[in-house]
Write a protein that binds this DNA or RNA. Structure first.
Length: 503
RNA sequence: GGGUUGGUAGCUCAAUGGUAGAGCAGCGCCCUUUUAAGGCGUUGGUUGUGGGUUCGAGUCCCACCCAACCCA
């Protein structure tokens, strides 16, 4: 055993005895762990250790098991099966777990006495030889162990894990420790984000970073969060989209770029909305929305193959039954917006505005919030097309009122050259042939800002006047993409720390 | 913002208006290949907060807080 009191001084704050601070609760369980903490110190063991060299993480040992090899590993004790003079421990971290076999005669009487002061939840380092138990479990026979961190609070139920949604979200670490299904979702999220970067990098796109704090928040129609710069004495906004800065970089000559990071929208919170969310935006000069659609299709299929092992994604309910099946096999269906509306109501475009509203009312659609006629049509689209579409669908030729910043279609000026990708009943990604005529852009933005010039990003418009190459652009909501690929029904299940009300 | 459901031991869950319980975890004892280890014993509670009704409230009523789901 290593360590000693001298190594432990940083634990105490000046004038306070270690172990007496931060004790707002005084339950017996906490008191017992505090006593063990002091017992470790009394035995000359630093309960909060330092550097420990490892040869393998816990999950790596069974994953690539070799019998009879000396290893050093470290992890949290997540289970303890006491057989008297020998003990079986599960040692875990995000890589997985490995079983440790610990015998008093092997580690010696001093270490065995120290072991008595350990608990489920503590971090330890172990050195020993690999072997296989009678039951066939790849294990490490400990010849020594080192206390790395004493846990002063008990872990959640070892079998059920954390079930309380509040604890899952507010104390995600407990969810990660005790729920393998949750760990798997985040493993997929991490692989998806890394996979997107690699995919785009392989195709010559470069990752850039643009301001998150903006004087004029643009690039989308959404309420921003407001903040203030003290030294400058000016208000700033958290970005609602990076678009207007990425387009400045197109002007600057970067022809294949993307940004994969957070945006902020000061709007409702729901199963599908978190105030901060992760979005990919990519711009490809000299391309159009059709090529962007193909790029997204190829990328998502690639992610499904590498992260989920196939093109068919299944979502499971609590009872283990399949609740959803999403088939991502290419080629993905592409359909015009107007044709999709006609598939719901064949003579929709022959009806007048009043007749359309009457039809909605007769079919149980609440359109009281729709002021304009195109909003009524869009509501029909959302309820009767979008929400029912599980497999990928590129919706093309959308009405220009819905996407005021896209290029009009040369053959039909009432629609724009965009796609909206729908998977799993929600909009996952829009793609554009980006508008690069500075005069049309100015007119659209002026119209959109409703004459409030302080909302107009003049510097962006000026940049366009220097000439922006024609380009295809996409946005992908990463949280929703992960929900779809990882089988999560709430955005809170794919964000480590979703926003929660103060308690 | 509206509606529904929920909040009980560290965790997972019980409890007709009538003495707040179980499993796991913890503590004590036994056990040198277990894996939800096992056996025997045992501790642990301001029932989300604040009011009210009642002889008596975890349970009924009101307000508030937090969460999940649905709607806007």
């Amino acid at each position: 055993m290593r360590g000693g009191r001298h190594a432990d001084h940083e634990d105490g704050l000046a004038g306070l005895t270690p172990g007496t601070i931060f004790m707002e609760e005084t339950t017996e369980l906490l008191a017992v762990r505090r006593q063990k903490l002091e017992a470790l110190r009394a035995a000359g063991v630093a309960p909060f250790g330092a550097r420990f060299e490892i040869t393998s993480s816990p999950g790596d040992i069974p994953a690539a098991f070799v019998e009879g090899v000396r290893v050093r590993t470290a992890g949290r004790i997540t289970a303890h099966r006491n057989m008297g003079k020998s003990h079986f421990l599960d040692l875990s971290d995000s890589t997985g777990k490995v079983q440790i076999y610990l015998q008093a005669k092997e580690v010696g009487p001093e270490a065995a006495a120290i072991f008595e002061h350990l608990d489920i939840g503590d971090w330890i380092g172990v050195e020993g030889d690999t072997f296989t138990t009678k039951a066939g479990e790849p294990s490490v026979r400990a010849s020594s162990f080192t206390v790395l961190s004493k846990s002063l609070r008990p872990l959640p139920d070892k079998w059920h894990g954390v079930q309380d949604t509040e604890i899952k979200y507010r104390q995600r670490y407990l969810d990660l420790i005790s729920n393998p299904a949750s760990r798997e979702i985040f493993r997929k999220r991490i692989a998806i984000v890394a996979g997107i970067r690699r995919f785009l990098d392989d195709r010559g796109f470069i990752e850039v970073e643009t301001p998150m704090m903006q004087r004029i928040p643009g690039g989308a129609a959404a309420q921003p969060f407001q903040t203030h710069h003290n030294a400058l004495g000016t208000d700033l906004f958290l970005r609602i989209a990076p678009e207007l800065y990425l387009k400045r970089l197109l002007v600057g000559g970067f022809t294949k770029i993307f940004e994969l990071n957070r945006n902020f929208r000061n709007e409702g919170i729901s199963r599908r909305h978190n105030p901060e969310f992760t979005m990919l935006e990519a711009y490809w000069a000299f391309a159009d929305f059709e090529q962007m659609a193909s790029l997204v299709e190829e990328m998502v299929c690639h992610l499904a193959m590498t992260v989920c092992g196939g093109h068919v994604i299944e979502h499971f309910g609590e009872d283990g039954a399949v609740t959803k099946k999403i088939d991502l096999s290419p080629p993905w269906r592409r359909a015009r917006y107007s044709d999709l509306i006609r598939s719901v109501k064949a003579d929709w475009y022959e009806l007048g505005p009043e007749a359309r509203r009457e039809w909605c009312a007769a079919n149980g659609l609440d359109i009281s919030h729709c002021a304009e006629d195109f909003e009524v049509t869009q509501h029909v689209f959302e309820k009767l097309v979008e929400e029912k579409t599980m497999d990928p669908l590129f919706v093309t030729h959308c009405p220009k009122e819905l996407v005021p910043l896209a290029k009009q279609n040369p053959d039909d000026p009432s629609v724009v050259d965009v796609y909206e990708l729908i998977i799993n009943g929600q909009e996952i990604s829009p793609g554009y042939s980006e508008l690069n005529d500075p005069d049309i852009q100015r007119a659209r933005l002026e119209h959109q800002s409703g004459g409030e010039t302080q909302k107009l990003d003049g510097e962006f418009l000026q940049a366009l006047e220097y000439g922006m190459p024609p380009a295809g652009g996409i946005g992908i909501g990463i949280d929703r993409l992960v929900m779809m690929l990882a089988g999560a029904e709430s955005i809170r299940d794919v964000i480590f720390f979703p926003h929660m009300r103060a308690r």
